[in-house]
Nucleic acid binder design. Sequence first.
DNA 1: CCCATTGACTTGTTTAAACAAGTTAGGTAT
DNA 2: ATACCTAACTTGTTTAAACAAGTCAATGGG
Lengths: 252, 252
Amino acid sequence: MPRQKYGEIYRALKGRIEAGEYPVGQLLPSENTLIGEFGCSRNTVRRALAGLVRDGYVQTRQGWGVCNIFQPIEPSSYTMGTIESFAETSRRTGQHSSTRVVLFTLCTAGEELARRTGFPAGTELFYLQRVHDLDGVPRILNHNYFRWDCMPGLTAQIAAGSSYRYLEEKLGMSIVTSKRTITVERATEEDRQWLELGEYDCLAVMSSQTYNSDGVMFEYTQSRHYPGIFRFQDNAVRTPEHHSIAEKRGPQ
Amino acid sequence: MPRQKYGEIYRALKGRIEAGEYPVGQLLPSENTLIGEFGCSRNTVRRALAGLVRDGYVQTRQGWGVCNIFQPIEPSSYTMGTIESFAETSRRTGQHSSTRVVLFTLCTAGEELARRTGFPAGTELFYLQRVHDLDGVPRILNHNYFRWDCMPGLTAQIAAGSSYRYLEEKLGMSIVTSKRTITVERATEEDRQWLELGEYDCLAVMSSQTYNSDGVMFEYTQSRHYPGIFRFQDNAVRTPEHHSIAEKRGPQ
DNA sequence: CCCATTGACTTGTTTAAACAAGTTAGGTAT
DNA sequence: ATACCTAACTTGTTTAAACAAGTCAATGGG
């Protein structure tokens, strides 16, 4: 039993869709056809297709088929629809990026900080302030709070690179879930000190709580973006289990 | 074979988590336990759990268990994390809301509009402009474009209510996928004409393309929000199939 | 005391099969 | 011609079983 046959099928189909091998607005080959082509069971094909539905590549309809709804996007846009580090995103979009650490201290979460971040009061934290430059212009001000007891040996040197890569590669800690909130806020003095806001007086603010594989929230980040480059993409699917009578009261 | 046993299990577990019946940060009962409790197969339990992972209620780890990572949220916040109509959202948050249609015309998509919306050039469209009031104050300016050939009998009267409800209930057209983009834009004269922006000079803009069950994009909407009430929530999970070498190039 | 191994758990992946239910085209009876 | 029905597709749901792989505590022997 090889590992992740459904992942291979997912990537194969995604590649074909992006390459335009299936006409947009038309049906993909049926599940039975794909079973024959990939030599696997129906469940495995269906799992790959479910991933394509989740990511907005296709849509399914009972009794009909799997429809290609892919529309290519300008690669220059600065997308944030998935968990990506700043370095990953800028590499993908081909923009030159760099990161400066402007503050690196230890602190303990007080009542106010605990309420804002979701850490329990009294938690010892690294507080890291970083400025991201895009093509030489300061565009993102990042406030990172890391649980001290989850980050053995974090130094400013490491933080200057990609803290996500540090976590995943060095610690073998796989980042699993990230709860994010996007708001728009007025620029503060601090924002103006570090970013070139031009004529804007607001910022796009993305706050996120990240959990490690132990189920411990180990990071709270607030990213304050220059509005002109901020672009968040998302894909929403109404799943049957949401269709119930009960209204939703989302977590976070 | 009853319909959607996994949906029942999903809702049962979600309800228990929200009610605090499982300690936060602790493990839920194991799959085997849940199989016994709900009297179903392992796959069905796993499907319910997968929904809870997607929605940020729990996290799983191989060899360990299913961990509760639920954190309740203030119910007053104006959340947009799933496909919801304005009416649904305001009812859920308990705010009084009303909608005014300020423009309702037919138009044909020109080159520029086609590029912006994603409709093919030449498509006949309803153009609907609506203002949403929240507790009596105009807060959202909505530009809706509907494909004329997908909307038999739409009138201003109906549009004044919930166009989503109209679509789902009257036409039996189940809305499936919605591709959304969030940006921040400077307020235009038109924005200031309809909304009370106060000291803000920016808006939160959410553009969305909605597909019907035929795989046809039948709606393009741009919602321009007063920044103070805009709040978008999201949950991101790094799935194994994304972990590949190939970078992502999101659709839409 | 320390370290390796084992065994009993846990979730992750895949297969095979059966039935339910929606869609569509073609054939039949009116 | 029209209306209905059927048959052959399609995807949706559920079950059962097997094996892979990660975790953790108990049990050893050194």
